[in-house]
Simulated assay, not measured.
Amino acid sequence: MQTYSLVQLTEIRAIMERSLRFLSLSGLSGVGAGVVALLGTAAGHFYLQAYYPSEYGASGYQHLLASTAEERQAALSFLLLLAAAMVAAALLVAWFFTQRQGPGQPLWNSLTRRLLVALALPLGAGGLFCLRLYLGGDAGLVVPGLLVFYGLALLNASKYTFDEIRWLGLRQLGLGLVAMLLPGWGVVFFGLGIGLGHIGYGLRMYQRYEWPAGPAGAPAASVLGR
């Protein structure tokens, strides 16, 4: 009888922990966000290649790092528009795959709001900091800064999710620190971190919790948790 009660208490505790951390997003949302990031990275690369014609084998991004303040400001509007389009497309992809997976826990609730605040504070501060770097002539530190602040945002939000998001944040942070040492490879590091990082993360979550039906009828995993 005592053993049965302990089993019940363990199950109740597991259910309570899941209710505090679960978000009903499909793992395919992470894959979609990664694909969007790769497409955006390619669009930015080809835009800079056209904006700064290649000389001596250097890429458009490398020319951007050595450009004047006026040239950087002229390219800024496109880069900001591209970033906004990538965020909007990633959100649209997340909504699409969430709707496809069927009814589940409501996507918008108090937990979602707390998680978004935890993400938004480091991301907002990091965005303004990187914008100042760009305008101040330190464009080579923009991509490393974005990766570092994004990693910190994921780590800050991980208290509302499970361990997978924490490891994703640590990978972004590590890539950002390495990218500081190789500023001319910023486009590559952005594609690796935001693009391939999310694709690998989303595939792992989908395979682990959603394919073919998740563990023993459990709800589908979240791209930000499980």
Score class of each variant (00 low, 15 high):
residue 17 E to Y: 08
residue 61 Y to T: 02
residue 166 R to I: 12
residue 142 V to L: 05
residue 46 F to D: 13
residue 172 Q to I: 03
residue 175 L to K: 00
residue 143 V to D: 00
residue 2 Q to L: 13
residue 214 G to H: 05
residue 220 A to V: 14
residue 115 L to F: 11
residue 3 T to D: 13
residue 93 V to R: 03
residue 186 G to D: 01
residue 69 A to L: 15
residue 59 S to Y: 04
residue 49 Q to R: 10
residue 124 G to D: 11
residue 91 L to H: 13
residue 38 L to S: 09
residue 55 E to L: 09
residue 17 E to G: 10
residue 185 W to I: 14
residue 139 A to F: 03
residue 102 G to L: 12
residue 206 Y to F: 05
residue 36 V to Y: 01
residue 99 Q to S: 13
residue 9 L to R: 10
residue 116 L to N: 11
residue 153 A to R: 00
residue 140 G to M: 02
residue 67 S to W: 03
residue 99 Q to I: 13
residue 144 P to A: 09
residue 12 I to F: 15
residue 11 E to A: 11
residue 1 M to P: 15
residue 104 G to L: 09
residue 202 G to S: 15
residue 132 R to D: 11
residue 95 W to K: 10
residue 8 Q to K: 15
residue 208 R to A: 08
residue 76 L to I: 11
residue 214 G to E: 06
residue 6 L to M: 09
residue 48 L to H: 02
residue 150 Y to G: 03
residue 32 G to R: 00
residue 87 V to R: 11
residue 220 A to C: 15
residue 226 R to N: 04
residue 201 Y to P: 08
residue 67 S to H: 12
residue 118 A to I: 12
residue 212 P to E: 07
residue 82 L to M: 08
residue 184 G to S: 07
residue 145 G to H: 02
residue 78 F to H: 15
residue 85 A to D: 04
residue 180 M to N: 05
residue 151 G to W: 00
residue 132 R to G: 10
residue 31 V to L: 04
residue 142 V to K: 00
residue 29 S to C: 07
residue 91 L to K: 14
residue 75 A to F: 02
residue 36 V to R: 00
residue 39 L to R: 04
residue 130 C to H: 01
residue 192 L to K: 01
residue 98 T to S: 12
residue 108 W to T: 09
residue 182 L to T: 07
residue 179 A to W: 01
residue 106 P to H: 14
residue 26 S to A: 15
residue 212 P to Q: 13
residue 157 A to C: 06
residue 120 A to Q: 10
residue 156 N to I: 09
residue 52 Y to M: 10
residue 111 L to D: 02
residue 46 F to L: 10
residue 16 M to S: 11
residue 69 A to G: 15
residue 190 F to D: 01
residue 27 G to F: 02
residue 39 L to F: 04
residue 132 R to L: 10
residue 119 L to G: 09
residue 61 Y to L: 07
residue 73 Q to P: 07
residue 218 A to I: 12
residue 33 A to C: 14
residue 40 G to W: 01
residue 66 A to F: 06
residue 10 T to P: 05
residue 35 V to H: 03
residue 130 C to Y: 00
